[in-house]
């Protein structure tokens, strides 16, 4: 459960300050699949950083489940991220020389999970994210872009987070591979009840979600159910 109340964010650079978010309020229930959409520079990533507990709002309150995240120290934020949030980035951000499996296990290192449990959970996440076992021991720079994004999704899943945050997850992929990755999010949302927040500037991508929050110039333009959800068939989902 995400509850944002009047969130604003102002960046101060010496004498000049930029207000990027101007009082944004919305809430997202568990199990929703929401797209946050808006043009470049509208404040999407800024909003994602706050929802993802990477940054604190200048004003307003943000509650994630039962935690008030808006006024925590750096290390407390790190703890929230470890327990509740899985990130998927546009540029994958994998450790290049490490194996696929080790990349997925990385969050469990900081959660201090036992080694055997780590391997078990990482392999399960990879299967859930749609990467078959034969790839698990490859180096992460030996696989295709679509597969890399699956590894990143598996890494986001491995801590069993209450929220998966994806910032332009298809930005570095061709349209077909992007479609497949989006179908993976849809499946995880449908089958495992994961809350997914997808950030994009493309309407086409946003239309894969159930609900679209449209932001512009730091405010919410519209927030409504998506009437024509694009559903990708499972049969397309292979890499």
């Amino acid at each position: 459960m995400i509850e944002c109340q009047d969130i604003s964010k102002t960046y101060v650079n010496g004498p000049n300050s930029t207000t990027v978010l101007k009082g944004v309020s919305f809430s997202i229930a568990d199990g929703e699949f929401v797209a946050i959409m808006g043009p470049s520079g509208s404040g999407k990533s800024t909003l994602m950083n706050i929802i993802g507990a990477l940054d604190s709002p200048t004003d307003g309150s943000y509650r994630l489940d039962d935690d008030d995240v808006s006024k925590l120290s750096d290390d407390e934020l790190a703890d929230i991220r470890m327990r509740k949030i899985g990130f998927v980035f546009q540029s994958f951000n994998l450790l290049r020389r490490a194996t696929v499996l080790r990349n997925v296990m990385l969050p469990l290192v900081y959660a201090e999970v036992d080694h055997e449990e780590r391997v078990r959970r990482a392999r399960q996440s990879l299967i859930d994210a749609g990467l078959p076992e034969k790839w698990h021991l490859n180096k992460s720079n030996e696989i295709s872009g679509g597969q890399m994004q699956r590894v990143a999704i598996a890494r986001a899943l491995v801590n069993d987070p209450s929220l998966i945050l994806a910032d332009e997850p298809t930005g570095n992929l061709d349209s077909r591979t992007g479609e497949i990755v989006l179908s993976t999010f849809q499946r995880l949302n449908r089958e495992q009840g994961r809350t997914v927040v997808l950030i994009t500037h493309e309407l086409y991508v946003a239309e894969h979600a159930d609900r679209i929050i449209h932001i512009k110039d730091g405010g919410i333009l519209s927030d409504s159910k998506n009437p024509n959800k694009r559903v990708v068939h499972e049969s397309h989902e292979d890499v």
């Binding site: 790190a78 470890m82 327990r83 990130f87 951000n93 969050p107 900081y110 890494r155």
Partner: peptide, 12 residues
Amino acid sequence: EIGLRKAIGAKK
């Protein structure tokens, strides 16, 4: 890499 480690929960 440091940014990623922090994002997935590494403390200072």
